[in-house]
Design a protein around this nucleic acid. Sequence first.
RNA 1: GGCUCGGUGGCAGAGUGGUAAUGCAGCGGAUUGCAAAUCCGUCAACGCCGGUUCGAUUCCGACCCGAGCCUCCA
Length: 458
Amino acid sequence: MSLKIYNTMSGAKEEFEPLVADTVTMYVCGPTVYNLAHIGNARPVVVFDTLFRLLQTQYGSVTYARNITDVDDKIIAAAKEGDRSIESVTDEYTAKYREDMAQLNALPPSLEPHATHNIDAMIELTSTLIEKGHAYESQGHVLFAVESMEDYGKLSNRSIDDMLAGARVQVADYKRHPGDFVLWKPADITDPGWDSPWGRGRPGWHLECSAMIRAHLGETIDIHGGGRDLIFPHHENEIAQSRCAHGGDYVKYWMHNAYLDIDGEKMSKSLGNFRTVRDLLQSYRGEVLRFALLSAHYRSPLNFSVELLEQARSNLDGFYGTLREVADMEIDVDVPLADEPFYQALNDDLNTPLAIAELHALAKQLNKAAAEDKPQLKARIIAAGNLLGILGQDPEEWLQGDAAADAISAEAIETLIQERVDAKANRNFARADEIRDSLLAEGVVLEDSREGTQWKRG
RNA sequence: GGCUCGGUGGCAGAGUGGUAAUGCAGCGGAUUGCAAAUCCGUCAACGCCGGUUCGAUUCCGACCCGAGCCUCCA
C-alpha cells in the first residue's frame, strides 16, 4: 500500500517516493501572527496534520515544519493601531494560534521556525541571488528579476507575458520588470529592521520560506503544502528564489488545499466573511470542527455552514455512542493497516470523506457484531480515528461532557434517573415519562437498555 | 483578457466506460411500557447539447452556470 499524492506541479496524482529512503521532509506555510486564525486558516492545518499522521505510519523519520511569520506589514500596522510593541502582538497571536490548533487535535509540528530567527539566512540567500545575477538593488530595495529565470511561472502555469496581460501587477518605478518581486525592502526608523549589505531593512514575504526550508530541512524537500491561493505568487516566487540560488529541485510534491466557502464565496479576511476558530469553539468542540473540515476532500471547496457542523457533531456522537457500548473492552489487537479500507482511502491522496465512510462501515459492523468480534472491530475504529485525529476521547465524557455553563449537573441527572428507575419499577410510567421529558427539555437524552439507563447531552 | 477548478438525490459528499458509496434528513418495520439508541428495509441524483463507443455520469468538443488566482489572503 503506497501513498499517492496529487502534485500541483504536474497536475496529476503521483506515487509518493521520498528523496531519502524512510525519511520525509514536509513544510507547510503557517500563519502571519497579527490576529486570530479563522476556520479557513485551520483547513490546511488539519489536512496536513492528517497527512503527518499518515506519513508517520509508514516512514521512520518524518520532519514537519510549519513557520511563524512574525515580521510583516500587517503586524506592524496591528502594533501601531494597538499602540503596542511588535513582540507583544506576535507573542500573543502565536500563543493563541497554538492553542486553537491544539483544540483541533492538530499535533505540534516537528519544527516551528520563526522568520525573525532566520534573518541571516535570508540575507545570505539574497546575496547569493544578487551574485548570480537573479536579483538587483534599486532604491534601497532588492528585487528578484523574473526575466532572469528560464521557466518562471511553471507551478502556476503562467508566463511573464500573461501576468502583464492582467495589468494588475504592482507597477513601481524601482522595478525593472513589473513582475519583479521584493526580496528585501528598506525599513523606516520606527519599523522593525535588520542591518544588511543594502542598509537597514526587512525581508519580503516570499523570502522566509525559501531561507528557512534551506536552513532547517535542506535544499530539496519532499512535500510543500498550503492553500491554493499561495500557488501564485507565493510558491512560484519561492521556487524562483531557491532554484536560482541553489540550482536543483526545491520541492518534489506540491500540495494545495481548496478553501472554505460561505454562501458560495471564499471565506477570507479581506471579504470579512470569516469565523474565527476561537469563536466557533464557543459553540462547537474542536473535534467537531476538525471532523467538519475532513468531511470533504482537501482539494474540493467545502461549504461551511451550521448544517455542516451539526452533521459533523451528529456523526461523532454516533461513533462515540458505538464506542461507549464497548468502553471497557481491552483492545490489545494488532491492526494491520495495509489491509484497511480506511487506510487505503487515506493513501489515495488523502481521501478523508471515503475514509470516514469506511469508519461508518466499521461502526455498523461493531454495533451488530458477536461479542468475540468486537475487540478487533473496536481496535480498527480506534486506529482509523487516530489517523484522522478523532475519537480519542473517553466516550462517556464526549457524550456527557459538552455542558453549557447553566446546564443541569450530572449529579442532578443521575438523581432524576434513579427516581425514574424507581417509578418504572412501580409501573408509574406517567412519572417516568415526566422525568424523561423534563430532562429532554434540559438537552439530556435518556437511553434505556437491559443494563440500565444511559444518558447524553444532545 | 490570461490561467485554474467545479456543477452528483432535500442537504453534505465519494466514485466509476456497463446494477451510482457513505452520512444527515424522510418514510416503513423490528425492538421498547412509550421513547432513545441500534438493526432491517425504503424513497430519491450524475447542469445542457453534440461526438467517440455495443454502451458515457465517467472520455472529447461546444454551451450555460458557479468559484478561484493574476493584488495582502489558507
